[in-house]
Nucleic acid binder design. Structure first.
Length: 161
DNA sequence: GCCAACGTTGGC
DNA sequence: GCCAACGTTGGC
């Protein structure tokens, strides 16, 4: 019996481009997480993300970066449609329809955090010292989170603490 | 706006 | 296969 284990992730989004409020406005709270154009991030999504996996939704490149809420993987990897759309910012003329270079997953909002958890707070929270997000020079837009890191951050994001 | 860090590209 | 140049990311 192959019992898939739940994995934990963090995805970044610039709230000016797509915020957790935008996700909340989607029908069913579901969106196609497309436009990922980094091989390491793609490989995580393609090879390891599975429906049900939990995802932290992080706001980056904004006045106050931090974790805004939680989502889950609603659909496993499929070809990112934007790579074939010349009108899209994600257009990649080198990608072949028979062997798509880039993939997307679907994400579904679980809940906005009751309390936004700023990056500065993550940096001073015990137990998060090894988080990929906090590593110097880290630019990954999709990265794994350990179960204990997930627990700590979810607790920080809930009102009752 | 600055700039460090990093990934990608392309000449050789 | 090396590596310099370039573009992008993202915190500050």
């Amino acid at each position: 019996m192959n019992v898939a284990r739940l994995r934990y992730w963090l995805v970044k989004s610039e709230p000016d481009e797509y915020s957790i409020d935008d996700l909340a406005r989607e029908p069913g709270g579901v969106t196609c997480w497309d436009g990922i154009r980094n091989y390491q991030a793609r490989n995580f999504m393609r090879d390891e993300m599975a429906p049900g996996d939990r995802v932290l939704f992080y706001h980056s490149s904004c006045p106050e970066p931090g974790v805004a809420g939680a989502a889950e993987v609603a659909r496993a990897a499929y070809a990112d449609p934007t790579q074939f759309d010349p009108e899209s910012r994600g257009y990649d003329p080198r990608s072949d329809a028979g062997a798509p270079r880039w993939i997307a997953v679907d994400l579904r909002l679980s809940a906005r955090f009751q309390r936004f958890v700023p990056l500065a707070e993550l940096r001073r929270t015990a137990g998060l010292e090894k988080m990929t997000l906090l590593r110097r020079g880290n630019r990954l837009s999709v990265m794994p989170v350990s179960p204990s890191e997930w627990r700590i951050i979810e607790r920080l994001g809930s009102r009752a603490r």
